[in-house]
Computed example of a mutant assay.
Amino acid sequence: MASCYVAEYATPRKNGWRAKGSFRFESDHRAMSKRNLFDARMKLLETYGADAVSWTVTKTERAKKGGGAKWR
């Protein structure tokens, strides 16, 4: 059964400025493992499209229940 995770991402620097953000995704693998990061990367690309190709996932962690997000 997949668990819900929160991933943080960062865009490349442009003129000294870097955007950062986060999103939720599901994965069967432990946080920050290669497969978990791969699942996060796929969700990042699915959500943000071609713009996200140069973005990097910097961190993943298990989402906390009751944090305002929907659990499936």
Rank of each mutant, 00 (worst) to 15 (best):
R35L: 15
M32F: 08
K14F: 13
A69H: 15
W71R: 05
S27M: 05
M42Q: 07
A19W: 10
L45K: 00
A10H: 02
R18A: 11
T56F: 08
A7Y: 00
K64D: 08
R41A: 00
Y48L: 08
Y48I: 00
D39Q: 06
S27E: 04
S3I: 03
V57P: 00
R41D: 01
S3M: 10
R30K: 14
G21N: 05
G21Y: 04
A52Y: 00
N36V: 01
A31Y: 15
L37T: 05
G66R: 07
V6R: 13
D28M: 14
V57R: 00
S33E: 12
R35Q: 15
V57T: 01
V57L: 01
R62V: 11
R30D: 15
A19C: 07
F38L: 09
A63N: 03
H29F: 13
P12G: 07
S33P: 06
V57Q: 01
K43I: 09
S54K: 13
A31W: 14
G16Q: 06
S27R: 03
Y5C: 02
A69W: 15
K14A: 09
E8Q: 12
R13E: 15
R24I: 08
G66D: 06
K65R: 10
F25H: 05
G21A: 03
A7P: 03
A19E: 14
D28E: 15
L44V: 02
R41S: 04
A10C: 06
F38C: 08
K20E: 10
Y9E: 07
Y9K: 03
L45I: 00
A10R: 08
K43E: 15
S22Y: 12
N36I: 02
T47M: 12
A10Q: 09
V6I: 15
S27T: 05
A10S: 12
N15L: 07
D51W: 10
G16T: 11
H29W: 12
M42S: 05
G16V: 01
L45E: 01
P12K: 07
T60N: 07
E8V: 07
F25A: 02
N15V: 02
R13M: 09
M42V: 09
M32S: 12
G67F: 00
A69M: 13
V6L: 12
G66M: 03
N15W: 04
T56E: 14
S3W: 11
R72P: 11
Y5D: 03
V57M: 03
Y48M: 01
T11M: 07
A69N: 14
E26G: 05
R41Y: 03
N36Q: 04
S27V: 04
K20V: 06
V57Y: 02
L45S: 00
F25D: 03
A40I: 05
M42T: 02
G49S: 07
N36G: 05
Y5G: 00
K34G: 09
G67W: 01
R24W: 06
K70F: 06
V57G: 02
E61C: 11
D51E: 13
A19M: 06
F38M: 11
N36M: 03
G66F: 03
R30T: 15
A50S: 10
W17F: 10
T11V: 04
K20W: 08
K14L: 10
K20T: 12
